[in-house]
């Protein structure tokens, strides 16, 4: 595998600076921080490794197929482990919806789905019409309210379409947490900065799938590059299937799509 390495004289910081200042035209190479280890893992997203990462010419899509989600909570566990997410805060979680014949919707999400769903709900007295699981994560809005309201530019939308948090500049005002219609954000209790799901940006840039996608046993979570016409997400988005987004009326234009989401899903 070809890794693009900076010249040995250049340390990473100055290299990155050079890239950013435009000496290396508009592209962002990546230098692997943990030896070649992560590169020994076969690439999962084709077209990332071994070539220039043109940050302005990328498009990724995330699709959650709720008809395939079985509520095992693998994604939640993987997510917590990948980031050491502090207890009580969630980058991703899985909700359980139960719909009664009266049209009443019962939703619960004990411990964010981390322990899975071992038992059915016992507190529902009426006859159940339908039940399903809904995984939630950052919607990567194209018009992200969190980016709009961040007073210091610590939350931003990168040219490749990811809403990221600059933990070195975040002042911890929590305005973005208020602004997110999906409640995907939280304030890290120790670092005191805002955090949220990044679709595992650090994995994607190494050609790997997001941790939650990678561990999903049923393929309910799908991720891929829209530049790759063979990818599953490309085929789904190109196809006739009905895809919806959450809280469309918020005008946030999420790039997270749901397949098979019922109207009760908020």
């Amino acid at each position: 595998m070809k890794i693009i390495n900076p010249s040995p004289k250049m340390n990473r910081r100055s290299f990155v600076k050079k890239v950013l200042n435009g000496t290396i035209a508009g592209s962002l190479y990546l230098v692997w921080p943990m030896g070649s280890e992560s590169l020994e893992i076969p690439e999962q997203i084709p077209g990332i490794r071994g070539r220039e990462y043109d940050i302005h010419n990328q498009e990724f899509a995330f699709i959650v197929d709720i008809t395939r989600c079985i509520g095992c909570g693998s994604c939640c566990v993987a997510d917590k482990r990948e980031y050491n997410v502090p207890d009580g805060n969630f980058r991703t979680w899985v909700e359980r919806y139960v719909k009664g014949f009266s049209d009443e919707v019962y939703v619960d999400c004990p411990n964010g789905g981390l322990d899975g769903y071992q038992h059915p709900r016992k507190d529902i007295t009426e006859k159940v019409r339908d039940t399903f699981f809904v995984p939630k994560l950052c919607n990567m809005c194209r018009e992200a309210p969190c980016v709009q309201v961040c007073p210091v530019g610590a939350t931003f939308k990168s040219p490749d379409g990811f809403v990221l948090v600059d933990e070195k500049r975040c002042v911890g005002c929590a305005y973005c947490i208020q602004a997110c219609p999906y409640s995907a954000r939280f304030l890290h209790p120790v670092k005191k900065v805002a955090q949220k799901c990044t679709w595992c940006y650090h994995r994607i840039r190494k050609g790997l799938l997001p941790a939650c996608v990678q561990v999903c046993p049923t393929g309910a979570r799908k991720f891929g590059s829209m530049k790759d016409e063979t990818s599953e997400v490309y085929k789904i988005l190109k196809g006739p299937g009905v895809l919806t987004v959450l809280k469309k009326e918020m005008g946030t234009f999420p790039s997270l799509y749901y397949e098979g989401a019922r109207r009760e899903v908020i």
């Binding site: 980016v147 709009q148 309201v149 961040c150 007073p151 210091v152 530019g153 610590a154 500049r169 975040c170 002042v171 911890g172 005002c173 929590a174 305005y175 304030l187 005191k192 900065v193």
Partner: peptide, 20 residues
């Protein structure tokens, strides 16, 4: 503020889109 020591960021890099 979670990080009060960074309060000057508000003056240094005020985001043009944010009311705050």
């Amino acid at each position: 503020l979670g990080r009060p020591e960074r309060n000057l960021n508000m003056l240094l890099t005020p985001s043009p889109t944010s009311a705050m």
